[in-house]
Simulated assay, not measured.
Amino acid sequence: MIPVFDGHNDFLQRVVASGPPVWLDGDGTGHLDLPRARAGGLVGGFFAIWIPAPLNPNDAAAVALMENPPFAMALPDPIPFAEALPHAFAQAAALKALERTGTLDIVTSARGIRAALAGGRIAAVMHMEGAEAIPDSDGLHLWHAAGLRSLGPVWSRPTAYGHGVPFAFPSSPDTGDGLTDAGRQLVRDCNALRIMLDLSHLNEAGFNDVAALSDAPLVASHSCVHAVSQSSRNLTDRQLRLIADSGGLVGLNFASSFLREDGRRLPVEGFSTMLRHLDHLLAILGEEGVALGSDFDGALMPRDLADAAALPALLAAMRDHGYGDALIRRIASENWIGLLERTWGE
C-alpha cells in the first residue's frame, strides 16, 4: 500500500468532544480515526487547531446557500484572543493526549517524521488554522515551544494579521486588503522559527504580501484550482506560478464544493474532477509541487472518497489515469515530507 501524508484535517475538534477513544476505536462518524487511517495507508499529516465560527460552511443555513450558486457568504467577525485561546488550548491538549496513546508522534522535524513512520506511528504536525490564539511574537514563541510547526495566519475571517477569503462562488480570491503590520512581523517571525506558513484561506493581497516577504517555500496546504472551479478559496494560475517559483507546494483539497466546476456543495461523483485539478496543478507546479490536503472532518467529501479508508481508491484512479507509481508516491507522501525538510531545515 502506498503511504499517504495528508496536508490538512480538522479531527481534533472531535477528540475535544469525545476523548481519545474516538481516535483509537472510531465512533462511526466523521472521516478519520486510527482504524480508518490504517486501512487507507494514512501515515501522517497536519492536525489543525481551529477556533469554531458562529456561522461556518457546515451549518445548515450555509449548506443551503452553497448548494445553489451563485452565493457570497459574509466573512464572520474576528474572534478575540481571550475567546480563542481556550479552544486552541483544548485542541492542542487533545493532540498531546493522542500522543500519549503511543499510536501517534507530534513531529517537529523531518527526522521526527521518519522516526514515527519507521516505528509504525502516525506522524502528526501541529497546525493552527487562523492565528487568533497568538497575540504577539512572544505568544508565537510559546506555541512553537509547544510543538507548533505550521500556521495559517487566517481562516475565512479577519485576524490581527490579515484577511481571509469569504466563501463565495463565482469569485476571485482578490477580496480585500493585505497583511497588517502585525501580519508582516508574523511572517518574519515564522521564517526565523522555521514555522511553515500556510496560504490556504488567505486572500490574494495577503498571499502577495507573504510571497514578497517570506524566504521559505510558499505552501497552500488544502486548496484547489481556480481555473477549474471559480471559488474564492481556490488559487489562480498566477498564484500557482508564484508557489512554483518558490519551490513550494499545493495540497489538493477534497472538499466537493471547491472541486466542482459548478461550485455546488454536493458530493463529487467519481474521480475525474479531482484528476482535472491534479493535472492542472502538475502542469504548473511540476511533479514535486503537488500533494494532498484532504480537509477530513472539515468539509463534504466526494462520494467515492468518503473517509480516510478510501484513500487507496484515489491512488488507483491516479494510476488508471496514467500516473506512474513514482509520481503517485510523490503526490501521496514524499512531496510533503520533502517540503517540510526544506522549510524546517532538518
Rank of each mutant, 00 (worst) to 15 (best):
G7P: 06
D10F: 07
R14T: 05
R14A: 15
V16L: 02
G19D: 05
G19W: 13
V22K: 09
D27A: 10
G28A: 12
G28F: 03
T29H: 00
H31C: 03
R38L: 05
R38D: 04
G40F: 02
A48F: 01
W50Q: 03
A64L: 12
L65W: 01
P70M: 13
P78Y: 00
E83R: 14
Q91E: 13
A92T: 02
L98A: 01
E99N: 10
T103D: 14
T103F: 13
V107I: 08
S109V: 10
G112C: 08
G112A: 14
R114Y: 00
L117D: 00
G119V: 02
H127L: 12
M128P: 06
G130T: 03
A133E: 04
P135R: 14
H141V: 13
S156Y: 07
H163R: 13
V165G: 05
F167L: 14
A168T: 07
P170A: 08
G176N: 01
R184L: 09
D189W: 09
C190N: 10
I195P: 09
L202R: 02
V210A: 02
A211T: 03
S214F: 00
A216D: 13
A216H: 06
L218A: 03
V219A: 03
V219D: 06
A220R: 00
S221E: 00
C224E: 11
N234H: 05
D237F: 02
R241F: 04
L242Q: 15
G247L: 06
G251I: 04
G251T: 08
N253Q: 06
L259M: 06
R260D: 11
E261D: 08
R264I: 12
E269M: 15
S272G: 14
T273M: 11
L275F: 12
L278N: 03
G289S: 14
V290H: 03
V290Q: 06
S294E: 04
P302M: 14
D304S: 15
P312S: 11
L314Y: 11
D320I: 02
H321F: 08
Y323S: 06
L327D: 05
N335D: 01
G338T: 11
